[in-house]
Design a binder for these strands. Structure first.
Lengths: 217, 217
DNA sequence: GGCGCACATAAACCTAGGTATGAGCCCGAC
DNA sequence: GTCGGGCTCATACCTAGGTTTATGTGCGCC
């Protein structure tokens, strides 16, 4: 499958996954930091959630280790806040004073794991590994979709209408009828759609449209 | 979209969702039974997991309320067992002596909720409602797929090969080349595929194939 | 005003898809 | 053994898809 799409600036060194650690206790941060680094992962430490929202994070797979009890905000509320801001990094919670309702809420909201202090190093490493793997999956799906989305963005309004009807299974003449055009015009638009979307067959166009959620209104 | 497929025997009365209650304490069973029935849902009571596996359950939306501590087996292990047997009913756990690791395990395995006794009636009703809604969603997806699956089952080996290559975007002549056939033969098989799968356009066939996970090996 | 772009259309031409009719081969079931 | 179904292929015919070339309109922008 030849699919030359957006070419990223070459990643010189394959940078390691990033683990973001958020805990208000410096000792805990340091301890987690050395644990995570010991297995070759990069870390970034924060004492408070607000700091995390400031700077942009690098574009690599990763996850967040989050204490439930944070200065100024509950870790669970912060989880919601991150989700609303479109930050989809998987979260591993840890807590010294957790209870079952907290756990249920965190897991329902998509947390990868919820560890009670004290936990064994291996438990945390397993959770982090699982979280990073989940992020890797999400990123690969998102990346493929982004190319398609940006291609779709280059379509004109007419081309989108034609695409919608074509992937719905209408013949060119039917599309022409619906849109009040001549068949030849539909063919032109259709050809433009195929070229701009970077697909060579109708089957590929249909799959792309499905992935983008392109449907008749 | 005209899609007359497998016609089920008409459901005379729209039977209410079924809530399966599994708890070894008769008093708890009775109490839950009256709570659930009070909102118009049907119930079925079991004192032990084994009983549940015996009889078949009616084909209606539903869920399971499961005590974590059961005679002979942990509710969590029973959850795994149900999953392995293809029983996909959403599960609401309850427990008197739960802890966080139990909760995490249950939620990771797909539980809808995990309630600590004592819980308020409304909490249980909310959880059951959410679970039934989840089952309803799952069932509607599955039902649509079942028709397509049974249609796919009627295809001959050759027809499946042709379908695989067609939805991959190959032209008839290319399919012919790959399979060592003449183009006209591919056209025949392709026509049979369209008829048997109950679709009229290539776009529909591609979507069906995606839903069924039909791909080149 | 002119330039670029989206949009629309036509004629001509070629390829691809789809169906009907007819026919031959193989194999397992009755 | 013969009957049906799956598989194969050919000829013929029709429809649908796709490209190229060329022409024209309207709109916004520098």
């Amino acid at each position: 499958m030849i699919r030359q799409t957006s070419v990223k600036p070459a990643p010189a060194s394959p940078s390691p996954p990033l683990v973001v650690i958020v805990d208000d206790d410096p000792a805990v941060r340091e301890s987690l930091d050395s644990l995570i680094r010991s297995v070759g992962l990069a870390t970034r430490l924060f004492g408070a959630p607000a700091e995390l929202l400031q700077g942009a994070l690098p574009d690599v797979p990763g996850c967040i280790i989050l204490d439930v009890r944070l200065p100024g905000i509950s870790g669970l509320d912060f989880q919601d806040q991150l989700a609303r801001q479109g930050i989809a990094l998987p979260i591993v919670f840890m807590t010294g004073h957790g209870d079952i309702p907290m756990t249920v809420r965190a897991m329902k909201a998509g947390a990868v794991d919820f560890l009670s202090k004290p936990f064994r190093d291996q438990e945390m490493l397993d959770a982090v590994t699982a979280a990073i793997e989940r992020d890797r999956q999400r990123r690969s799906v998102t990346a493929a979709l982004d190319d398609q989305r940006s291609a779709y963005a280059t379509l004109t309004a007419r081309e989108r209408e034609v695409m919608t009807h074509v992937v719905a299974g209408l013949m060119n003449k039917q599309v022409a009828g619906v849109l009040g055009l001549s068949e030849i015009t539909v063919k032109i638009h259709r050809g433009n759609v195929m070229r701009k979307m970077g697909v060579r067959t109708l089957a590929d166009l249909v799959r792309t449209a499905e992935a983008l959620g392109v449907h008749k209104p």
